[in-house]
Amino acid sequence: MTEAVISLHGVSKVFHPPRQRPYVALEGIDLDIQAGRFVSVVGPSGCGKSTLLALVSGLLPATSGQIVLSGRPVSAVRSDVGFIFQRDALLPWRTVRENVALPLRFRGVPATVAGSQVTEWIARVGLSGFADNYPHELSGGMRKRAQLAQSLVNDPPVLLMDEPFSALDVQTRNLMENELLELWGASRKTVLFITHDLEEAIALSDELVVMTAGPAGTIKARYPIDLPRPRSVTEIRFSPAFVALYERAWNDLRDEVLRSYQRSLSAS
């Protein structure tokens, strides 16, 4: 067995919002992800999925427990990961080309070298005709492509994705999912993918992690997914193995979604 690239042991996160009671977002998270694996996390909204990614990337400090990324404990923001945010994070006042070039600029890569890398990545995500456009001039799907190029231009070994395609229409989403699998197949990065869409999670991943409802969200179940690759996310949904897995995982997830819903009702 290869060494884990992402490993969490006994990780918890407590928020202390001003003038409110502390809120336990995550508790007792143990998770090891081997190099090159594609792991998806599903759970009801508010269960702490985004918080989990913030902890792994070092954007937020864990309250307790140990997080190790690529062999080094996480103690500050890690720029050796790619992070695709749920919301658009491209700088609106920069063109696609300038946005994709940012990480190279921050690292002091000479402009000539950066230029060719940027052009190559823009082409790889299919945005060659739009390099000099501003984000608002692109469709939602194109903006996600630009963000992929921006996150991958440095070639980080780990890719963290927070519901990246949730705002896209179904056709665009399926297209993007297939392209993501292609990119991943070519590079075999370690991917931690957050979604609330169980179908998407199973279709993409090697492993599925189901979380419990918050507060104190934790891991409820893990399912290995041994569906053959390469996959087409649009077709794999019809395979009997997919359907069987979906049913088992849905049983787990449904309970948590209901629990989360009831808690939100009693809280309000």
């Binding site: 954007l59 990961v81 921050f106």
Partner: peptide, 11 residues
């Protein structure tokens, strides 16, 4: 999100 994103990108 802009700030988080650029920090991850190495800012």
């Amino acid at each position: 999100a802009f700030i988080d994103n650029v920090r991850i990108l190495g800012a």
